[in-house]
Design a protein around this nucleic acid. Structure first.
Lengths: 348, 348
DNA sequence: ATGAAAGCGCTAACAG
DNA sequence: CTGTTAGCGCTTTCAT
């Protein structure tokens, strides 16, 4: 332990010629403390001069509040999304005087390993726990996570017992499709994922509804599904674009599949956005920003979900809200449009 | 504080009918403890039955060892690299019984804000600190970081006072260029960065040396520099490829610039790898894996640097090594080749 | 308006 | 072979 700060409250007290109680009271601005202005100044000055810093561990032991929140994240490294989640959480936590402690988990781990992750945090006396999954799905929380302040991030709790926050898949998809409609497209296709996850179904549903609401007809043959990576996007796009009566606008399940579509279009001599408009989903900046033309897409609100979850977790810790009340259904956060250069009016 | 575990060592002692000392001794496997096998079993059984878990805060306060290491990272979210750094660190720390506490910083912050980040960690009584910069550069550490166990990750300390670990820029660049040479290329170009950072100079130097070592001549007009992003790569590539006597192989400063080169090549009707071989740097998977053809590149060893730094920091904390000894020059870690599909023998 | 003292949960002398 | 006890640095009740 780094005891460069070997200076504690009693050193300050001694140097200032007062008791430790007084020091504690002034440094913590205790409301009921009745201490003269001069004493206060003297204490503060002495503390500063000695370079005093509180030992948060000792305080935590005494107050039963560590000011630490545990953050369990699946696959921290494989996706840039986790970084934004952590950032949203860290910034929010710091603003409220908390720090975050990170544990990396895997989406393939056993229930016991998940419980161990939670237990490790509990031994550290964290005030609450944030559990983030790698992608939006339905998730069964570790048993020992229930009954303590916790929020599930980017997944819905199957048991419905804890609060959670997820992206607004439907809203985001509607936004994306509407961009195409607003640009004047009437024959719109979709490249979808084949995985059985909430996003797959919600985005398809929203696609269909948005078309219908706009008075356009939904053509089942204009939705092609594949594995949600670049090669899948390419394959699906080839099917979608090679036919005789191709769409003039395409909504892609994610930016990676859109990247595959770009390649297919390039290969077929179809220009984006002149001959084909495309909108993605996720706003994976490395891809969306760097594709040519830059991809118009809808952002997955990872920073915001991390921030929301942290804000509410802390509110619950501090007794300002009751997390149990929102446990029933997930809080849904907006997926905003990020307009770039891949959408134009249809040709002719 | 989550006192679901309201069960402490004294509860276990009472339930097992022994003293707290005995419980502490058996649960911590204290070497000099002389306790009968039966007592040990009884204690362990009781602890398990009651669901006892140690309060690491109390232990830390008593032992002056928190078992926490602080991790300050610049720009956690903007680069996927930070994720790998954190992962390497977290996995290593966990394996040795430590946890990591994250603080997000910025590369543009003031010296005071950096010192505050360090101070926050110090108040938490972390046993040591890892300070990671966003990219490899020369860095002045916060003043209050000196004198405590700490290692600088992905930068070299200008003051030379603390240990650091950086990627082997030269070695990585040599590897990249050698791949081109081994494939039979003799006219090789480079697309370089314009920033004045160690990587720019080291990679260029290695490029030149590797050519010379192979008996090839270095043509200054075959190195084109621009801002190290996709558009810069495109611009530089247009200059490099539009000329009359263009190279058959190109080494790019990073994968993003290589992506720009791909677009230029596509536009000029130059096929990769048939007409042009390319190798990148960084192994930004989202790009390198998904470009068509997939990009052969050299990996920046973020996971390894995180792991190395953590391993050594903990060794220092535990008194196994003296960090000061390696403070003079940075430890350099290998940048391995990631062979994909963008290199072939030169045409005809 | 200020101070003494107890105690948060644990470890480690030291004492039997 | 096992138990008593002091104390890590702090907050807070209670006294004065």
């Amino acid at each position: 332990m780094l005891n460069n700060k070997t200076v504690g409250i009693r050193d300050v007290a001694a140097a200032a010629g007062v008791s430790v109680t007084t020091v504690s009271h002034v440094l913590n601005d205790v409301s009921y403390a009745r201490i003269s202005a001069e004493t206060r100044d003297k204490v503060r000055e002495t503390a500063a001069r000695l370079g005093y810093g509180p030992n948060r561990l000792a305080r935590a032991l005494r107050t039963q509040r560590s000011g630490m929140i545990g953050f369990i994240s699946e696959e921290i490294a494989t996706t840039p999304h986790a970084g934004r989640l952590i950032l949203g959480s860290e910034v929010t936590a710091k603003a409220r005087g908390y720090n975050i402690m990170i544990i990396n988990s895997t989406s393939t781990g056993s229930p016991e390993s998940r419980e161990n992750d939670v237990a490790a945090l509990l031994e550290r006396q964290v005030d609450g726990i944030l559990y983030a999954t790698m992608y939006h799905r339905r998730f069964t929380i570790p048993r020992n996570l229930s009954g303590i302040p916790a929020v599930l991030v980017d997944s819905e709790d199957i048991g419905g017992s804890i609060a959670s926050v997820v992206p607004d898949e439907e809203g985001g998809a509607r936004t994306a499709v509407q961009v195409l409609i607003d640009a004047g497209h009437t024959r719109i296709g979709m490249i979808n994922n084949t995985d059985d996850v909430p996003a797959t179904h919600a985005r398809l549903r929203a696609f269909e509804e948005t078309l219908t609401d706009a008075g356009l007809t939904f053509h089942p043959e204009l939705v092609q599904s594949e594995h949600s990576e670049v090669p899948g996007g390419y394959t699906a796009a080839m099917r979608l674009l090679a036919g005789p009566h191709r769409p003039t606008g395409v909504f892609c399940y994610n930016d990676r599949m859109a990247m595959g579509l770009y390649r297919a279009a390039n290969q077929l001599g179809i220009r984006i956005p002149q001959d084909l408009s495309v909108v993605g989903f996720d706003n994976q900046e490395l891809i969306a920003e760097n594709l040519y033309p830059a991809l118009t897409t809808v952002a997955l609100p990872h920073y915001e979900m991390g921030a929301w979850a942290t804000q509410h977790l802390i509110d619950a810790i501090e007794g300002k809200i009751e997390l149990a009340e929102s446990a029933g259904q997930p809080t849904v956060v907006d997926c905003p449009l990020v307009a770039r250069d891949s959408v134009a009016a249809p040709a002719g």
